[in-house]
């Protein structure tokens, strides 16, 4: 049963990702990517990462991609502008190179015995992938600091600097 769900979600993930690159209109492209993130959240849930699956939908599909759509709506591009983004014959060179490199990687992964021998372990820790485990790593307990508390604080500094940088860049005149 789990095998069929993995292949269903994996096929949907690849199909919607490829469809995003084939769309002329950026709005259709971003909506296709949002669909692919829902499939990816399903794969995360299949790996018993429930909290990450929820965050993928809430933050990634719900916040980051909606920001993309918001910006595209601001631009008000015409149809003639989209037709500049057409497939040229010289684009066949990176396409073929990417297909060759990707098939090389996939063949190497398929032949690797070290990766193939790992299968899903039945006896996971009870709080694997839960909010409890994440908060323990990020915030620690009442008496101790979590292993990644400093990293968490650094991420908040990074996001603050990104906010300031975005405001400065998008401002018409400083």
């Amino acid at each position: 049963m789990g095998v069929y769900i993995f292949y269903l979600f994996g096929t949907g993930l690849i199909a919607t990702s490829v469809a995003a690159l084939l769309m002329k209109n950026p709005v259709h492209s971003v909506l296709s990517i949002v669909t692919s993130f829902f499939f990816l959240a399903g794969i995360y849930a299949g790996l018993s990462m429930q909290f990450l699956a929820v965050i993928q939908i809430l933050v990634y599909a719900g916040a980051i991609m909606v920001l993309f759509i918001f910006i595209i709506m601001l631009f008000d591009l015409q149809k003639s502008e989209y037709s500049k983004d057409r497939f040229l014959w010289r684009d066949i060179i990176p396409l073929i190179l990417m297909i060759i490199t990707a098939s090389g990687f996939i063949a190497a992964i398929g032949r690797s015995e070290a990766i193939k021998t790992y299968v899903v372990n039945a006896k996971l820790p009870t709080n694997f992938g839960s909010v409890n485990a994440v908060s323990f790593e990020f915030f620690g307990t009442a008496n101790s600091v979590g292993r990644y508390s400093f990293l968490f604080e650094m991420i908040s500094v990074l996001l603050l600097s990104a906010i300031v940088g975005a405001v400065v860049l998008a401002k018409r005149k400083l």
Binding site: G2, L13, I14, M98, K116, V119, V120
Partner: peptide, 19 residues
């Protein structure tokens, strides 16, 4: 069950689609 190599292959395909 699905082996680890399937997930890594899916990740590789997705990365090259993005590239």
């Amino acid at each position: 069950m699905v082996p680890l190599s399937s997930y890594i292959m899916l990740s590789t395909i997705l990365f090259f689609i993005g590239l």
